[in-house]
C-alpha cells in the first residue's frame, strides 16, 4: 500500500506535465489542422532558455521560468509567421514535411549552440524531499505539479472566458463563417500556435530543473504528447488533459506491476486499444475546444 501511494503520487506529477504537453499539441491541431512536429523542440527550447537565464545570466529562478515561457510563445509566433502562414491551404502532407524539416533544423541548431554535454539547473528548493508518511516527493516536483495545473486552468479560462478565446473556438467550429464574422484568421492561427508552443516551452522549463537538459530531450516527449492527443481525441482540450493523466498512470503502474522494460509499451498498447475500439479518442463526445 505504501508503495501504491508513492506510485500514485509519481503518476499524478508526471501526468500533469503530459497533460500540459498534450493540450498545446491538441489546440494546434484542432484549430490549424497542423501536425506540429516542432512541439518537442519547443519543450527543449524552454529547457535551454531556463538553463541560460538561471545558470548563465544568473536571473531569479521563477523569473527565468516566466522568461523562458514568453520566449517560447515568441518562437511559436515566429514559426507560424515564417513557415505556416505561407502554407495555409496547402496539403497536410506538405505542412507535415515542412514541420519535420523545422524539427531537424531546430535540433541541430540547439546542438551547435549548446554542445553535446548535458546541462543541469540549480533550483531554490530544498534538497530534502517532502515526506508524507511513506510517500516522499521533492519540493521541486510539488511546484511542477502546481504550476502545471495552474497553466492548464489558465489556458482553459483563456479559451472559455475571453473574447479571443471565443474567436478561437469559433474558428475551430467553422473557419469560413468565423472569417465572415470578421475574425482575423491569421491572427487566430498565430495566437493558437504561439499559445500551444508556449505550453510546450513551459513544460520544458518546468521539467528541466528536475531532469537534465539535453539536445534530444524533446524526442520521447513529443512522442508522448502525440500519444496523449490520440488518447484524448484530436482537438479535444479535456481529452488531452485527462489523457495525460491516464497515460502517466498506465505507464507508472505498468512499469511496476508488469515490467519496467515495457514501460513505454504499456502506454502505447493502451493507444492501440483506444484506436481499435474508439478511434476518435476516449472523450470524443465531450466538449471540444469549440
Amino acid at each position: 500500500m505504501d508503495q501504491f501511494l508513492q506510485h500514485a503520487m509519481n503518476a499524478a506529477i508526471l501526468g500533469s506535465t503530459y497533460a500540459l504537453l498534450g493540450i498545446g499539441l491538441t489546440m494546434i491541431f484542432g484549430i490549424m489542422r497542423v501536425v506540429n512536429f516542432t512541439h518537442g523542440e519547443l519543450y527543449t527550447f524552454g529547457a535551454y532558455m531556463t538553463f541560460f537565464f538561471v545558470m548563465v545570466a544568473g536571473v531569479n529562478f521563477f523569473l527565468s521560468l516566466a522568461l523562458a515561457i514568453v520566449l517560447g510563445i515568441a518562437l511559436g509566433a515566429l514559426i507560424e509567421f515564417v513557415l505556416l502562414r505561407p502554407l495555409r491551404g496547402a496539403d497536410i502532407d506538405i505542412t507535415m514535411l515542412v514541420m519535420i524539416g523545422a524539427w531537424i533544423v531546430m535540433q541541430n541548431t540547439e546542438q551547435m549552440v549548446w554542445g553535446g554535454v548535458a546541462k543541469s539547473i540549480d533550483t531554490p528548493f530544498p534538497e530534502e524531499p517532502l515526506t508524507l508518511g511513506p510517500v516522499s516527493v521533492p519540493w521541486l516536483r510539488v511546484f511542477i505539479f502546481a504550476a502545471a495545473i495552474a497553466l492548464i486552468a489558465g489556458t482553459h479560462m483563456f479559451i472559455h472566458r475571453t473574447r479571443l478565446g471565443k474567436a478561437m473556438r469559433a474558428t475551430f467550429q467553422d473557419r469560413d463563417t468565423a472569417a465572415l464574422m470578421g475574425i482575423n484568421i491569421n491572427g487566430i492561427n498565430m495566437l493558437t500556435f504561439a499559445l500551444g508552443s508556449g505550453l510546450a516551452a513551459a513544460a520544458g522549463a518546468l521539467l528541466a530543473p528536475a531532469f537534465i537538459v539535453t539536445i534530444t530531450m524533446g524526442n520521447p516527449v513529443a512522442l508522448k504528447a502525440f500519444a496523449v492527443v490520440i488518447l484524448g481525441g484530436l482537438g479535444n482540450f479535456w481529452g488531452a488533459a485527462i489523457g495525460g493523466f491516464i497515460l502517466a498512470i498506465v505507464e507508472e503502474f505498468g512499469a511496476v506491476y508488469i515490467s519496467s522494460g515495457y514501460r513505454d509499451a504499456t502506454g502505447f498498447l493502451l493507444i492501440i486499444l483506444v484506436l481499435t475500439f474508439r478511434p476518435t479518442g476516449l472523450f470524443a463526445r465531450r466538449e471540444r475546444i469549440g
Binding site: 505504501d2 508503495q3 508513492q6 506510485h7 509519481n10 508526471l14 521539467l207 531532469f211 537534465i212 534530444t216 530531450m217 524526442n219 520521447p220 505507464e251 507508472e252 512499469a255 511496476v256 515490467s259 519496467s260 522494460g261 514501460r263 513505454d264
Partner: peptide, 20 residues
Amino acid sequence: TETMDPHAQDLSAQLSKLKA
C-alpha cells in the same frame, strides 16, 4: 532487475520499486 529506456528521464517508477 529493472530496466529503463535509454532516453527515459523519469525513473521514479523503477526506483520506487527498487526501494521497496
